[in-house]
Amino acid sequence: MLEIIPAGENSLIIYFDKKIDSNLLRRISYYSETISKELNKYIIELIPSYVSIFISFNLNHISQFELIQKLERILTKKININDDRDIPLFEIPVYYGVDVGLDLKDVLQKKKMELDQFISIHSQIEYEIFAIGFAPNFAFLGQISNDIRVPRLKTPRISVPAGSVGIADSQTGVYPINSPGGWNLVGKTPLDLSISNNEISSYLRVGGKVRFKPISRDEFISQGGLL
């Protein structure tokens, strides 16, 4: 399935599939780069997300119709995505503790699990970034192990502190700024993941990889973490 559908007078969306998976993510990430490079002079925004790529373009230089033709040319070319492109792994230190992970106790109870077990399950997987949105630099990471999946909170919190690590269904992620949020909070990172931190934006891209590194409460504090 491949569909290009308008999203506005100067925007469109490319749907690649109706199901989320890792192979598709690699294709989407490949095409995002290729389109950005080859059609750079026309493209204003390009948002890859799970199964689609949203594009807004410069109407002064190209029409919707012409752009769709150019996109079709790129999208129908045979590609080899098995190339072992170096995808940088971004490591995020996390203190898993009930004093910062306000839902950790509940999650452990629901899953009838010890904290150590939870930590090893949550931190052993190399997660992939399926989408970025909701807030600047909020990366939707998947997929978390079946053993620790819980639904999102029935009532979202009005304010979740920046740095909080959350889980909801098959996804996990870090709140980069204070914001409302409905995910179960299980820990906190001392890292500044907001867009003010220029060093991380090259890692936080759709298709990128993330792993959580467990740290102690003392390490969390010494790295600047706020309880």
């Binding site: 506005g8 925007s11 807030a135």
Partner: peptide, 26 residues
């Protein structure tokens, strides 16, 4: 499945009513 939203796009909530996204929208 969450997808890029254009400014001005008209979302229909599960209750069947529209929300029009403005410039500060996610």
């Amino acid at each position: 499945i969450s997808e890029g939203s254009a400014v001005g796009s008209i979302e229909i909530t599960p209750k069947g009513l529209p929300i029009i996204l403005m410039r500060d929208a996610p």
